[in-house]
Design a protein around this nucleic acid. Structure first.
Length: 398
DNA sequence: CCTCCACTGGAAACCTAGGCTC
DNA sequence: GAGCCTAGGTTTCCAGTGGAGG
């Protein structure tokens, strides 16, 4: 009996998927890592980068490049697009494109691991000195005569937290490569990134600098229309929905990635509702979903101590200071039997959470009442609760 | 003008996990 | 397996700070 009932439910779901209204016919076009055949409004940038990298076709080293621009201005996709085309055209050369997002690979060692993976070199995930890893990498590159383009995404984030020593080592490593070479494409969201660099690093890393201006709302609309043409069934999206996506993304510093995300999630919402068409209301739901998902992902991947501190902030009042948070933090640790870290460390973690955009921690002076960080939580408590629900140690605190 | 709060944030020392050499 | 090394996280120590209140 039960078995049959279960089967009926599943049959319903499967049938719905197969016969139901279909809005999306090609979902890949809406993915973040999709690389279109044509990148509009970026001709100037493609030309400069292309000219620079074209030297590789003749077996010469290309300059290191720095790409600047806010999120969603096409830096990463342009870099990937050009390097992909380059690989297609190259012959007699072992060209390898390695990619590392330094926000995800957030230590020097992990960045080098990304590079090692790209060239099929086995490196233990810990235990070696950076110097030793660099040496093994350059030995391997020379041995295999690799020409390498290393794309370092969100390089500003890494430099702010770890300094520029690794970048210096990488830019200098060409001196040890005979034959082979290593070119770096640094991608930065922060236009003032250069200030964090030592002049010696800047001069070699920033041999060429290319700026990606934000897209205008009209440009975003045009990009969306092209994607929608491929992704959706004919007439399955209203003009108003596209306009709204572009307007929302355009008002936030011309972020095309966000616009495409909105479009994809709006379409998913519409499909689930079994609507015929993506409408404005679906886009409005998508706005909330995106905000929620972004924070949710950041929260669940946080280390335990960071999670506890977020809960401590939640339990403090809205205008709390480092001292308040630390008090609550100690109480919680005692309650659940977790080792208590020092206030100095908590102060540092608060700064890290600020950098992640989960809280704001501004240093304020209260005159004779001292100097501290004023801390404010940026994520809704509901999302925090939901994200930490899975965590055995924390679930009963909330 | 001076004091003094409640920290900040730099620097160095320490700890731990893991690889390397012999 | 002992004894070495390093990266990354943490602790320890402490000089420094901007302004409210005297």
């Amino acid at each position: 009996m039960l078995k049959e009932e279960n089967e009926n439910i599943l049959d319903d779901i499967f049938n719905k998927i197969l016969t139901g209204k279909k809005i999306i016919i090609d979902p890949t076009v809406l993915n973040n890592d999709y690389i279109p055949n044509y990148l509009p409004f970026r001709e100037k940038q493609i030309t400069s980068i292309g000219q620079s990298l074209a030297l590789i076709l003749k077996g010469n080293k290309s300059s290191n490049l720095l790409l600047y621009g806010k999120t969603g201005t096409g830096k990463t996709v342009v870099a990937r697009y050009i390097t992909e085309k380059l690989i297609e055209r190259v012959n007699n050369i072992n060209l390898i494109v390695a990619y590392s997002n330094t926000r995800i690979s957030n230590t020097g060692y992990r960045i080098l691991l990304d590079l090692a993976n790209a060239i099929n070199l086995d490196i233990p995930f810990t235990g070696l000195s950076i110097g030793e890893v660099l040496k093994r990498l350059s030995d391997h590159i020379s041995k295999e005569k690799y020409f390498i383009i290393l794309i370092l995404d969100e390089i500003d984030y890494f430099t702010k937290t770890h300094g520029d020593n690794l970048l210096y080592d990488l830019t200098r490593s060409n001196e040890n490569l005979h034959p082979g070479f290593l070119s770096i494409i640094g991608i930065s969201n922060d236009l003032n990134f250069k200030e964090y660099l030592n002049p010696r690093v800047l001069s070699s890393l920033g041999e060429e600098e290319i700026v990606f201006p934000p897209y205008t709302a009209i440009e975003i609309k045009s990009i969306l229309e092209k994607r929608a043409d491929i992704a959706f069934e004919n007439g399955a999206i209203s003009q108003a929905a596209i306009s709204l996506c572009s307007a929302l993304a355009g008002s936030e510093h011309g972020d095309a990635r966000r616009a495409v995300d909105l479009l994809r999630i709006a379409a998913e919402v519409a499909e689930r509702e079994e609507a015929n068409k993506v409408e404005e209301k679906h886009v409005r739901i998508a706005v909330q979903r995106i905000e929620r998902d972004r924070n949710y992902d950041a929260l669940i991947s946080l280390p335990l101590q960071q999670k506890i501190i977020l809960i401590s902030i939640l339990k403090s009042n809205s205008n709390c200071t480092t001292g308040d948070v630390y008090q609550n933090y100690r109480d919680i640790c005692k309650k659940i039997g977790i080792e208590i870290l020092t206030q100095r460390r908590i102060s540092g973690i608060l700064s890290e959470l600020d950098l992640l955009g989960l809280i704001t921690a501004n240093v304020v002076n209260h005159g004779r009442y001292g100097r501290t960080k004023k801390i404010r939580n940026l994520v809704s408590s509901q999302i925090i609760r939901e994200a930490f629900k899975e965590d055995q140690t924390l679930s009963n605190l909330l």
